[in-house]
Simulated assay, not measured.
Amino acid sequence: MKYKNQEEIGSFLGDWCGAHLQNDAGLGKIDVVVPVPLHPKKQKKRGYNQVALFAQKIAESLHAEYRDDILVKGVNIKSQTKKDRHLRWESSKEAFCVNPDCNLNFRHVLLVDDVITTGSTMESCTRALLQLEEVDVSLLSMAVVQQG
């Protein structure tokens, strides 16, 4: 999906996952679904954010707002696929910030990414979101890489 221009896979997975999340009483009311952003240069090169369509379908299923303008990736990090856990954490710990120009009227954010490898990206995004007053953050990813 990410490297082979298979963006439509996100739609299928979003519909499937969204149907399951509708029945998850433990999740609570989600106000807004936010995809982990790409750096503008990377998005321009790829042509799309691989997690956007997935997040949009999740938002539809949960009757939540989809917002891709809340988080901003300010640092263009090269692919982290070959980096170890510590290097991933170091390079992404301050890579994301909240967009000061957007309307931030929500309480519960569902942050969505395609894959969690070490958790450093989700941690950095969550850290930025939690700087907002009275905001709860839940995390969702399409896949998790088993460490071992």
Rank of each mutant, 00 (worst) to 15 (best):
E94D: 14
A64G: 12
I116V: 14
T126V: 03
K44A: 08
K44S: 12
H20D: 10
F54Y: 09
L53N: 04
K41T: 12
Q131D: 12
M1C: 14
D101R: 14
I77Y: 00
E8I: 07
Q146S: 12
S124Q: 00
N23K: 15
F96N: 05
V51I: 09
S138D: 13
S61I: 00
Q146M: 11
R107E: 06
R67S: 07
L27M: 11
T126N: 09
T118K: 04
D15L: 12
P100Q: 01
Q147C: 14
A143C: 07
S120L: 05
P35Q: 06
V36G: 10
L139I: 07
V115H: 03
A25D: 10
V145C: 08
S11A: 10
E94S: 15
Y48S: 13
Y48T: 12
S79W: 00
D136R: 10
E65K: 07
N99Y: 08
N23P: 06
R127G: 13
V72I: 05
D136M: 09
R46D: 11
K41W: 07
G14P: 11
M122P: 15
I77Q: 13
L132S: 13
V144T: 11
V144R: 09
T117L: 01
F96Q: 05
I77P: 12
H86F: 11
D114I: 04
A143H: 08
V34N: 01
P35N: 11
I58Y: 03
L130G: 14
G18N: 03
D15Q: 13
Q131R: 04
V34M: 11
D136E: 14
S61F: 02
E60M: 08
Y3P: 14
D101P: 04
D68V: 13
E94M: 07
V51R: 07
N105L: 03
E65P: 02
A143D: 02
N105D: 13
S141T: 12
I70M: 07
N105A: 06
Q146G: 09
A143I: 06
H63L: 05
I70W: 03
K57G: 04
S91F: 02
